[in-house]
Computed example of a mutant assay.
Amino acid sequence: MTYKNLLPLTMALLMFPQLAQTLYSPALGDISRAFDVAPERAGQTLSVYFLAFALGVVVWGRLSDRLGRRPVMLMGLAIYVGASALALTVTTFDALLLAQACAAFGAAVGSVVTQTVLRDRFHGADLAQVFSVMGIALAASPAIGLFSGASLVEFFGYRGVLCTLLLLAAVLWGWCWWALPETRPASLPTAALGQTLGLMLKDAGVWRSVGLVAAFNIALFSYYSVGPFVFAQQGRSTAEFGYSGVLLALGSGLGAWLNKALLKRGLSGERLVVVAAAVAVVGSLLVLALQHSWLLVWPMLLVVLAFGMAIPNVLGAALVDYRDRLGTAAALFGLLYYLVIGGGLALVTWSQDLGWSLLVCGLAALWLATSRLLRS
């Protein structure tokens, strides 16, 4: 399969986990009402999602080295379809959390295995460019997710979101069955999980990448987990929150486009991550100042722009030293950063303070981004 043929499918697969998260965000208020739970408890669905996602990442990444990329992708998507069907039948909030955990476990295959497929096919500067293109596609995910999720909740409640996600996963399964190639190298040895974990835990570069991915993602998803309740406190509707996602997608898309353009001009990915972190700090300070007003959406644009600039560079450079065990290394890398994201979002939903959450993430990203440059 050529690059042009592979690109649409891998874009869709990478977008799916983020779509699943952002489609679900506008439904949190309806879930809170339907199951008679507090907003903080309803927000736990996102933190549970990330923690289960972390487990899925390590399982699917490991299996992709053993069984191949294609069969593992089909298995993960099938589990998502089954879990979404289960979520439509539950009657208690705890059962919904369990169904969401199972769905997240399955959805993780779209992240880790797709990234592994891309790393199988592309290397070096080409890989950074591919991740930049993917970043532009991912920038559309929040807009599609928030706007579509808000519209579905308005007419059908949270069940409309679940039905849509089930349908999307089923369509992706069929597309993969028809078009996804097997990219696992025929001579790839099965790396020992414990040995790979030991190498990565001692690798300061891996921990730096984990921290950067987590910081930018927690900042982004803080808005999705706390935002519905911030809008509700201001007397604004779920639909208005959904519309804000369209505006934020413009910022994320601009960040990804700027990143791609600046890479072509010869700027290094490391320096672009530093710039992105500084932009995130500025945006966070402005959100903190405006977080009791709907105007917070405008400085939030800077936060998502920083996400669009930084993430392609961090992901593209993270595992360059683990090409002989990409599936296993990607699994463990994903496990580490999704555990941090899940824990961070649990703290965010507990605090319900968007501005300070963003500022902590921005400062952490700036420290991590500058520390390597200062040492070099």
Results as ranks from 00 to 15, higher is better:
L366Q: 04
P189R: 00
M134Q: 04
G198N: 12
G174L: 13
L172M: 09
L258H: 09
F155S: 09
L345Y: 03
T10K: 00
V287D: 03
L374H: 13
A191D: 04
L332N: 02
I136A: 08
T2G: 14
V287P: 07
Q234H: 14
D321H: 15
G205E: 01
P8F: 01
W177G: 10
S64W: 00
S351C: 03
A139N: 02
E270I: 09
A318K: 08
A108H: 10
Q129A: 13
I218L: 06
S293D: 14
L28Q: 13
V133F: 09
P39A: 09
L55V: 15
A139V: 05
T196F: 02
A261Y: 02
V58C: 04
L6W: 09
L7I: 07
L363E: 00
S187I: 08
A103I: 11
L55K: 10
G266R: 05
S47H: 10
A369T: 07
V304N: 09
F122D: 00
A125Y: 03
S357C: 05
A34S: 15
N5C: 02
A191L: 07
T116L: 05
V48R: 10
A34H: 10
G106H: 07
Q18S: 01
G106D: 10
A150G: 11
L305T: 03
G334F: 04
P185E: 04
Y243H: 10
T164A: 14
S225A: 12
L296P: 02
P299C: 06
V133S: 07
G342T: 08
F156V: 12
Y322P: 01
V112G: 04
P299L: 06
L354N: 05
G245T: 08
G362E: 02
V230E: 14
M300R: 11
T92A: 14
G266Y: 01
L180W: 01
N259A: 06
S237F: 13
Q18P: 01
G327F: 01
Q115P: 00
L146M: 13
T89S: 15
L28V: 10
V282C: 10
T22D: 09
V171E: 11
A364D: 00
V275Q: 13
A12K: 07
A179Q: 11
Y158G: 12
N313Y: 11
F156G: 02
A310P: 03
P39I: 13
E182T: 02
V348H: 13
R208V: 05
P8K: 00
R70C: 15
R323D: 06
A278H: 12
V226A: 04
V171C: 12
G308R: 03
V273P: 08
K4Y: 15
G308P: 09
Q129P: 00
A87R: 15
Q291Y: 00
G110D: 10
V360E: 01
S244F: 08
V213S: 12
R62L: 05
R159S: 11
C102S: 13
L88T: 13
M75V: 09
L172S: 04
A186L: 07
G43N: 06
I311F: 11
I79D: 09
L63N: 07
T190S: 09
V348R: 13
P181L: 03
V117A: 02
G334H: 08
G266D: 04
G61R: 07
